[in-house]
Design a protein around this nucleic acid. Structure first.
Length: 585
RNA sequence: GCCCCGGUAGCUCAGCAGGAUAGAGCAGCCGCCUCCUAAGCGGCAGGUCGCAGGUUCGACUCCUGCCCGGGGCGCCA
């Protein structure tokens, strides 16, 4: 509808240009917007005020000229000029009639643009290191990424969802060693666990598995393990200690023994994360392994590409990328003095791989703490000879849990953090998904656990779900009365929906496709969450105001059409944000 | 020091590609179940849109500076 109105105005201006009323060179960007006040019709356009300056004419005069030239439209009842020169468009009854029919006909597809009608997007999100279970911070990225991906898809984009698995670096080695040490403990060795090791209980679980599979094969006496290692903790450097321990593990276990610990840890963690996310309604098309970048040659290829364009140089024994040439604050090391590639090198390789596979947009969804990556990845894109505009970064701010009005403290190292799984078990998937995205992702989130768990009216999730359940219950009651909903009769009598509540609901339903579009463009699922809350509110209000199951066949069926349409839109919207639409509560 | 978010009603937040009287939920107060689920509805009350300049016919929205809160700045991952 909005696009339709904009088109009408563009045509009107075109006429005026041809008639010489307006300078044909004049550049105009027409934008219609939803009015806030019903008094102002349904859509308003400020184009007359915008053009007043360059043309040196009075806005109201211009507005009249434009109105006179507007092509007729069945969807527009009247156009008024108001205030300083707004063009106010009132939707026609015809348009409102069509809305319900369209929703009932399209069903689950209502509000969905044709697949592929917009560009292709590769969305990467979560990508948490597989060194431990997901915590509540990852939860927000997961909920946001999944909801946004679904919305983008509904808006017509082709979307690829990817999780980048950091299965390569030092953290993974530390994880493997942690597992091995716990294994040794289980085998009966006495040891003091390194300060920087991973301490969570899940490490024991993995160690038990390793032991079940390999028995005592990987056992070495602690005296050998610790022999001559730099000290840990207070009197030493924990970093040096753990690195030496990694070296020792490789030495004693050999390639295959070490790999046993490593892959047991990796597989267990990735599987655990995958299951966790699946239960959260978050699924990926691809789990992209960092190690694959090396084995597939992508890493080498990316570095060569930077090299051949002359963006690499050697300093202090390391190879650097001239990121500062492209606006990054400093140059970045690609190959370290010790010959190993950096994490950044993998990022560049993964980026190259993404751009080769997806010709559209590479969407990065990061935690806000990663904002420093933005300039360096844009620099990388340019260094590769690609367009940095293809990269889209969305930074998700932190979520802080509150219980009984107090902040819930989290500490990652100790292993006593609140996991996503725990959160899900406590408040449920629906509430968690909704709460995570109900606020703008650019906004810090106070996650109120008590509110999320509350089954009272203050909980917005239940409020929306309740509207849907009530709708289902209306049809159950109809059934109980042995009556049938006749859509055709309702459609013929659609003009009977003339109360304020009904008119407002028709307008709200018609707005849904624009909400999807807007939420997609702004990368903001919260826009949809708010809309659904609004729609539910409109429904509850109507529900209390007038009965649906009335004697009058025409009126009853017309109202049931509207009720069914609202249920459909609630369902469609909720499914995009991963919240269920219950039939009963 | 530099960079990124935010500062709107008592609380949590919408609104911000400039527009017509600044919105919602919660909390507070007052009402509504012989009726399709009261997990609901109606009403009242509540705001110097952090502060100061600037751009504009018009600024919560854009620009600059400052103040306050959160986060980030590695040959770590």
């Amino acid at each position: 509808m909005r696009a339709h109105i904009e088109e009408l105005i563009i045509q009107a201006i075109g006429y005026l240009k041809r008639e010489g009323e307006l300078d044909s060179e004049l550049e105009v960007e027409v934008r219609a917007e939803r009015t806030r006040d019903r008094e102002h019709g349904d859509y308003a356009c400020n184009i007359a005020m915008v053009l007043a300056r360059p043309t040196g004419r009075k806005p109201r005069d211009l507005a009249e000229r434009i109105r006179d030239r507007l092509p007729p439209s069945k969807r527009v009842e009247k156009v008024e000029i108001a205030g300083p020169g707004f063009l106010n468009f009132h939707a026609s009854p015809h348009y409102l009639r069509v809305v319900v029919r369209e929703i009932l006909a399209d069903g689950d597809d209502y509000g969905r643009a044709p697949k592929g009608s917009r560009g292709e997007i590769l969305a990467e999100f979560v990508s948490a290191n597989p060194t431990g279970p997901l915590h509540v911070g990852h939860g927000r990225g997961a909920a946001y990424g999944a909801s946004l991906s679904a919305i983008l898809e509904a808006a017509g984009h082709r979307v690829h969802r990817e999780y980048y698995v950091n299965d390569h670096g030092r953290q993974m080695d530390i994880l493997a060693v942690s597992v091995w040490l716990r294994y040794l403990e289980l085998a009966g060795e006495a040891l003091s666990f390194p300060t920087n090791g991973y301490r969570g209980d899940y490490i024991f679980d993995i160690a038990r598995e390793v032991r079940a599979r390999h028995g005592d094969q990987l056992r070495h006496p602690m005296t050998t393990v610790m022999d001559d290692l730099p000290p840990d903790g207070e009197e030493g450097d924990p970093e040096q200690h753990i690195d030496a321990l990694i070296g020792r593990a490789r030495e004693l276990l050999g390639e295959s023994g070490y790999e046993a610990c490593f892959s047991a840890a990796l597989e267990t963690m990735v599987t655990d994360i995958r299951d966790d996310l699946k239960d959260f309604g978050v699924e990926f098309d691809r789990w992209f392994s960092e190690r694959e970048l090396e084995s597939s040659g992508a890493l080498k290829r990316a570095i060569e590409r930077l090299e051949s364009s002359g963006w690499l140089y050697t300093k202090d024994g390391a190879v650097w990328f001239k990121a500062s040439e492209f606006g990054d604050s400093k140059d970045r090391v690609v190959i370290r003095e010790n010959g190993r590639t950096t994490y950044f090198a993998s990022d560049v390789a993964y980026l190259l791989d993404k751009l080769e596979r997806c010709p559209g947009t590479s969407l990065y969804i990061f935690g806000a703490d990663h904002h420093g990556y933005v300039p360096r990845l844009k620099a990388a894109a340019q260094g590769l000879g690609e367009d940095p505009e293809q990269l889209d970064f969305q930074l998700v701010q932190f979520a802080v849990l509150f219980r009984a009005g107090k902040k819930v403290q989290m500490s990652t190292r100790s292993g006593s953090f609140v996991t996503l799984r725990e959160l899900r078990e406590e408040v449920g998937k629906d509430a968690a998904r909704y709460f995570y995205i109900m606020r703008s992702h650019e906004q810090h989130l106070d996650f109120d656990l008590d509110l999320a768990k509350s089954s009272a009216n203050e909980n917005p999730v239940y409020y929306i779900q309740y509207a849907h359940a009530r709708i289902a219950s209306v049809f159950r009651e109809l059934d109980r009365r042995a009556q049938r909903h006749n859509q055709a009769i309702g459609e013929a009598a659609i003009d009977r929906l003339d109360s304020e509540h009904e008119q407002a609901l028709l307008r709200a339903l018609g707005r849904y496709p624009e909400v999807i579009e807007n939420a997609a463009e702004r990368r903001s699922p919260h826009v949809l969450a708010h809309y659904l809350h609004d729609l539910a509110s409109g429904f509850h209000s109507w529900y209390n105001n007038s009965p649906f199951l009335v004697e009058d066949d025409d009126l009853r069926n017309a109202r049931l059409n509207l009720v069914a349409a609202i249920g459909q839109v609630l369902r469609n919207g909720l499914s995009l944000i991963g919240v269920s639409a219950p039939e009963k509560m």
